[in-house]
Design a protein around this nucleic acid. Structure first.
Lengths: 415, 415
DNA sequence: TTCTTTTTTTCGAGGCTCGAAAAAATGAGC
DNA sequence: GCTCATTTTTTCGAGCCTCGAAAAAAAGAA
């Protein structure tokens, strides 16, 4: 907060706060909103009637579980699903999926396209994104946002994809391209960050201020929530857990460097090791889930190269988590993705490695949760990102006149 | 911002904002404050006259560099040095220093005590802190805060020291003890975090939102600024860069584990290696600066064990920075402390190691700044932490009546 | 039908920031 | 030395916003 608060801003923020409360809570009454926000009943009443009149919120009669108490019954409030729609895109290896979501977060329609991401030109990828949006939104009244999740590194501003294992091209400006095509704000974000956003949304009890989402699949991705905010770096989406160095001058990584965690724990690394190949052998782009499952089955049967491969993967992950914990303290970890299918093999070794690190002092206390399918998380993360963006940037401020206002100039105040 | 804004809060925050602007800028006029904060002249005028009346601010006549323009001359404003004083404590190996600072941040008095921290009992350490404060504040009107910097791990709440290499005792509750003794708020913080705070204060151009302060000395400490905020973990001060794993099952660290960065880059590690000792030999608590300087001189003369020791230290630091950059993106780095005396030897090797990592893609662009003496930074960081704490928590809110106000209850709104 | 209880709305009070205008304080020009 | 121009600071009324208290609304209980 480096800038002064003016009067209109107070209203805007309190409006946004009410919207956020309604989105979070399950059809709260005005009284409950007052309790959640700390604002007075009168204020909530005023803001609510504004929002209802503007078609952002609506009354939903008595809440389901009407407690049939005495007194005047509470009137449940909910966001108006027709207030807006948003489009979520998800680009991953050989696949591009689109989802249309209403203002309440309910899925209206979905569509998936298969394409050869490694072979497509830069322009073909951009075109594919545009036509996926066009197809899902076809004939429907205008959507207000696009949230685009990509498997790869994005820039911190959420404008483009900087690098991805799914295509040889870099710096693909999906943001500007889609904005030009549809005239709505677009955010481009790392898929793992969307997973983290979804986890927080689904289970704020467990995933609140500091937690880690690890995506175990061909590569190793991470979404990091610090102090309740998705962590991104100065330039990029950052959080490249998979490319922290596990063993200096170690195994060859997909990124071309050596010794990265991913070079031990990615699918290709496990496959390479289990098949007795050299650690310097060029990584394979895509190893099928079935093949990994077969390796896991072999490993479960007893010691051998497969078992050793998973052991090394677990060690890399465990030590990496330990180093991360040294930096940010132990925090809940969610493991997501196909790689979690072998988590029964990995877990003991991960814990053993973690226990050797400073961050893993209480390795037994660290709890892992696993989810084999990352796709629903990515989709929900995109949806909630786009919708809460609308809440705070569009419907909170509203479009009342006189919203100009001054901005403080350079040399901002540092607190 | 999970809670609604009420009217009085708006004033409080704008007041605090004005105070912050005056602290930041060099004796700004009301007009300049308006520009910096984005608030209107009328508001600044009103707030300024309040603050002056309350003895928090004062007019300082014309600013030094009076530009002698036409019009009514600006009236420079400054914080009233007599508005408050704060005490800064700094506990490190065998040393406890205290500084009394006025509300403008000027040092009023300093004092240093030598003590055998490794030998003292828990209570003796607590007593030493209390008497250091008593001595520095003796006879002077009451100070309003104590900021305590310790070499070691503190808890995230800033209440106590959890662990430190300077004493065998753990969980020493300096915060409660000092608060009980003096009845003022106390914050206990990691010394490296204070270094980071000071860097930001001294050079916000370079050290603004994301940067790293590394303390190279007996051990390796880090202060991490992320998104303009000092990073602390959920439980502890975190940021234990020195205990990230450099080589699994590697050299013995002071913390009892193996392969930590510190076990290669701390003074004891360099000394151990340079003297041809085993990497598993028990670390030495304190190696004198002169001895390290001698080792560096030997290393400068040519290849040999000393040179190799510095080389391994640099590699550990470089790869560690690379892993950190993979997580948070490249950021400015400040190296502080006695260990920087050998930075001429370390730098090329650090850059070489960094260049091999994913985070060090543009290793040549990364800039390092070195400062051999960490003490002034720690002191200034403490002072600014205590003073800005006063600004926002005491003088901003003020003590006008009716400040009660409601608080939102549980189930806070998640944005 | 009346009383009790709870939710929601209404209404006036009090605060805050803002813009415009006035006041203050100086240099420039003659 | 006086007046005018220029810039800073203060004053003042308008417009919002939130708040508390009271009123209104909407039910169950008796």
């Amino acid at each position: 907060m480096t800038t002064g608060i003016r009067h209109d801003e107070m209203r805007k923020r309190n409006r946004a706060l009410v919207i956020a409360a309604v989105r979070r809570a399950d059809q709260p009454s005005r009284t409950e909103i007052a309790r959640l926000t700390g604002l007075s009943h009168s204020t909530i009443s005023a803001i609510a009637s504004d929002l209802i009149e503007e078609g952002i919120m609506r009354e939903i009669g008595q809440g389901e579980a009407a407690p049939a108490r005495r007194g005047r019954p509470q009137v449940a409030l909910g966001l108006d699903p027709e207030a807006a729609t948003v489009v979520c895109l998800h680009l991953s290896f050989n696949s591009l999926s689109a989802v249309l979501v209403d203002y309440c977060g309910r899925v209206i329609d979905t569509g998936t396209h298969h394409l050869s991401t490694l072979a497509l030109s830069r322009q073909a990828l951009l075109d594919a994104a545009v036509s996926a949006v066009r197809e899902i939104a076809c004939g429907r009244e205008g959507f207000l946002r696009i949230a685009f999740a990509v498997q790869g590194i994005t820039d911190a501003a959420g404008r483009q994809m900087l690098w991805s294992p799914i295509t040889p091209h870099s710096d693909i400006a999906f943001g500007p391209e889609l904005e030009a095509a549809f005239g709505v704000p677009v955010t481009v974000q790392n898929d793992c960050n969307m997973i983290a956003a979804a986890l927080r949304w689904r289970n704020p009890e467990r995933y609140r201020d500091n937690f880690i989402a690890l995506l175990l699949s061909q590569g190793i991705g991470m979404g990091l929530m610090l102090n309740g905010q998705l962590f991104t770096g100065t330039h990029s989406s950052a959080g490249e857990f998979g490319h922290m160095i596990h063993r200096p001058d170690g195994a060859l990584c997909r990124c071309g460097r050596r010794g990265c965690i991913e070079a031990y724990a990615g699918n290709y690394a496990i496959w390479r090791k289990a098949h007795g190949k050299s650690a310097m052998e060029k990584p394979i782009a895509d190893i099928k889930a079935g093949e990994m499952e077969a390796l896991a089955a072999t490993a479960r049967r007893g010691d051998g190269p497969a078992r050793q491969a998973f052991r090394e993967a677990a060690e890399a992950i465990g030590i990496g988590i330990g180093s991360l914990f040294a930096l940010i303290d132990p925090a809940p970890v969610a493991m997501v993705g196909q790689g979690t299918a072998a988590f029964d093999i990995l877990e003991p070794e991960i814990r053993a490695a973690l226990a050797q690190t400073a961050g893993g002092q209480h390795a037994d206390d660290v709890s892992f949760e696993t989810w084999p399918d990352e796709v629903p998380f990515i989709q929900q993360g995109c949806a909630m990102t786009a919708l809460t963006g609308l809440d705070w940037e569009v419907f909170g401020p509203g479009l009342r006149p006189g919203a100009g206002g001054r901005k403080p100039e350079d040399g901002r105040v540092v607190a």
